[in-house]
Design a protein around this nucleic acid. Sequence first.
DNA 1: CCATTAAAGGATT
DNA 2: AATCCTTTAATGG
Length: 231
Amino acid sequence: MSRLDASLLADLPPFSGMSRDALDDMLARAVSFRSAKDTYVFREGEEAHSFFLLLDGYVRVVKVTPEGEQVIVRYIATGELLGIAKAIGRDSYPANAVAAVDCVLLAWPSNTWDAIVAAHPGFATNTYSMVGSRLVGTQDRVVELATERVEQRVANAILSLARETGRKTDEGILIDFPISRQDISEMTGTTLHTVSRLLSGWDSKGWIKGGRQKITLVEGHKLMMVASARD
DNA sequence: CCATTAAAGGATT
DNA sequence: AATCCTTTAATGG
């Protein structure tokens, strides 16, 4: 049992505006645990026994079609909530959650959801506004998938990953976890070959710098041109 | 414009 | 050595 201090939570969006006492109470109800890279935090269809906060690392949320095809729904970054089935009136998880790197999480039993929401209206408000913005983001992606060309979708995926998870390096903005061409294709509804061709093209123009499971955004504005190009 | 198939080389375990 | 990841080219919808 490591001692966790409430100040760990204070700066995270789900807990913004909450008092020190409230944070202590939330923390007292949680247990922390680790999830090694490539292990499941939870699985689709499983009973939603807990909801989670990602304290460190990255988690990808994945749906698998009946044919076994994988679709990456979103990436969860450090400081975000996941598995909040109770908040959307479900009692099973709607997708798989896989650690993209070694992760540290907090878990709350789902049966404490109602009590927590009742005791901490600020947390409830924060959670529902997060659910709302994820919904908006998902809607935008539906439009994108339906209307934009592959090149634009891949450019957008790189840009948002860099924005949400990017870490500054001397080269540019590095996407902060191992991500393969296959992963990008599962986010954008295309094949790894097409992603590979696009990325190596942008690499040779100096707009990005690629490597095995590595992408660094060098000229973000160039990709924004690609992402918004009308034809 | 993009998916599929095939082939080959480098990286990782 | 076996497996995974990436690149490249050819073909066809």
